[in-house]
Nucleic acid binder design. Structure first.
Lengths: 291, 291
DNA sequence: AATAATAGCTGATCTAAGTCAGGTATCTGC
DNA sequence: GCAGATACCTGACTTAGATCAGCTATTATT
């Protein structure tokens, strides 16, 4: 192997060139990068400007000026928050939405262009980018509740089903259908659906639904391959257990399959104990835990 | 699979943050990024400032000022090129070398830190970075002659040997030793050693050495796994054949092993024809080509 | 030898970005 | 009800980076 440091530096130069071309006068729409970055965070529904300031780590004076310049372009409108009149909210105007769509088109085209350069290695390139992004962003994983019918949730479930279909003999894709048949079981006060995001890309999920008056069942623990090895599954399980307790459940159960040894090992080391079977195929192992 | 474009954007944000932090470490030594980038290109042996200007795409006025500020810090010295007294050359002073060593330490530490974050996936992270860097830089591959005893050449040979030891049954690492026993056979006027660089990182090599008065032997064709699929082997072979012809040879021979089917396929499609065996194990196939 | 081209420098000017010390309006806790 | 905290704004200032016109010295062309 050639020097790892030299490789990392070459990587840095390569992506600096790639994203640098992207940076300067952001995507060539005649707007400084700072203003463009702010614009990206403003939604038609309105974004609290304090949120923008925190996310971009901007000085309040600087942000104030950037917002004013965007307002002068009629891309955003500013309003006072009625609940706290010190705060202000930025809204994307119809003109602003048009402008954002233009950014989107360009960004899309650039991304497609980059992927095209990989030729037949496209999937390998995406996998490589995933691994790097997840590694670099591992300190920024955020776990948030989601609507089980939201597109991100369905994407997670689809990925989860793909894993099952690939790993467990006898499972075919048509045995697993979307969306869930009982979504209301996965929202408070009956249950929960938690997604782990790495910079807004879902990389893991877990859910809990009612099983008996004081017992809930944990379902659909999934961690994307690019995000493994950082204890995310453990974190997801800990979160869902806490959530179930808060919902008033006093015990949890779950089933799993022998083809998922990492999951089984995790349950064994986190206080779960084997219980009698309560489901059929594809389950081969059953666990319970008192909260 | 989740949306490829979203993944690519997440990747962009992740590495932007990462290389941004790297930029700040340059700033961390009390010098603006521009000056630091210039300093990186100045060698103790002297660098033509026109070369710096082209590489960094700097305005001559701006570069002039940056050089002056580095000179004021006693990190570089400027001299007039004796062969063309309009040109100037920048040399790294001993103080400058000390400063560069400091940058090197920082870069090394940061790189080690990034790699450490990958935990046990370190090798996977490096492979992923290689694939991305090579894909993004594929239009920037440069083929240059090298001294067969130079560190880059030895690194190539080591990688080549690793491939052989891994793919061919019966080869053990101790059968292949560095450096070459006959380096003088690989430099003009007897032979050549060509390395393919992707932004200064060797990703492939090939060589030719004398076999008979008008016949030379092609040896050690290697392409790094991250650089495959872009026709680099073909380009290396074309280059080495042209080089052999320029050295006065009228025919070429080579041997290879059945465990390297891509190489054999390449020879078949580029005018090489099977010839009688002229070597023993590990060779299993022999080819010749008239120039 | 006259002219044009080239390499580099200087001074003037501009923009983006960031920093900081106030200032105003509003809210919160006691 | 009031002190202090909070959210945001304003104006003044700084730095990095870039651009451009014009300058000198040198080399190449004819």
């Amino acid at each position: 192997m050639l020097d790892a440091i030299a490789r990392l530096r070459r990587f840095n130069r390569a992506v600096t060139r790639e994203t640098g071309a992207l940076d300067h006068s952001y995507l060539g729409r005649g707007r400084p990068l700072g203003a463009a970055r702010v614009l990206q965070l403003v939604t038609p529904q309105g974004t609290d400007i304090a949120e923008i300031r925190v996310k971009l780590a901007l000085d309040s004076g600087l942000l104030s000026r950037l917002l004013r310049s965007l307002q002068a372009e009629h891309l955003i409108s500013l309003a006072t928050d009625p609940t706290d009149r010190r705060r202000r909210t930025a809204h994307l105007t119809p003109q602003g939405q048009t402008e954002m769509a233009a950014y989107d088109t360009i960004g899309h085209a650039r991304a497609a262009d980059t992927l095209a350069r990989a030729g037949k290695n496209q999937q390998a390139l995406i996998d490589a980018m995933d691994l790097i992004a997840t590694t670099l962003l591992q300190d920024q994983l955020s776990l948030r509740d989601a609507d089980p019918n939201a597109p991100e949730a369905l994407a997670c479930l689809q990925s989860y089903y793909d894993v099952l279909a690939q790993k467990i003999d006898g499972i075919t894709p048509d045995m697993l259908t979307l969306p869930l048949s009982d979504p209301q079981n996965y929202v408070a006060p009956r249950g929960a659906f938690v997604i782990a995001y790495s910079d807004d890309l879902p990389v893991g999920c877990v859910s809990v639904r009612p099983h008996a008056p004081t017992t809930a069942e944990v379902k659909r623990l999934w961690v994307d391959s690019s995000a493994r090895g950082h204890g995310l599954a453990r974190r997801l399980m800990h979160t869902i257990e806490t959530r179930a307790k808060a919902l008033g459940y006093t015990s949890l159960i779950l089933d799993t399959n022998q083809a998922l040894p990492e999951a089984i090992a995790l349950y064994h080391t986190t206080g779960w104990t084997p219980i009698p079977p309560y489901t059929d195929f594809p389950a081969t192992h059953w666990f319970g835990k008192a909260l």
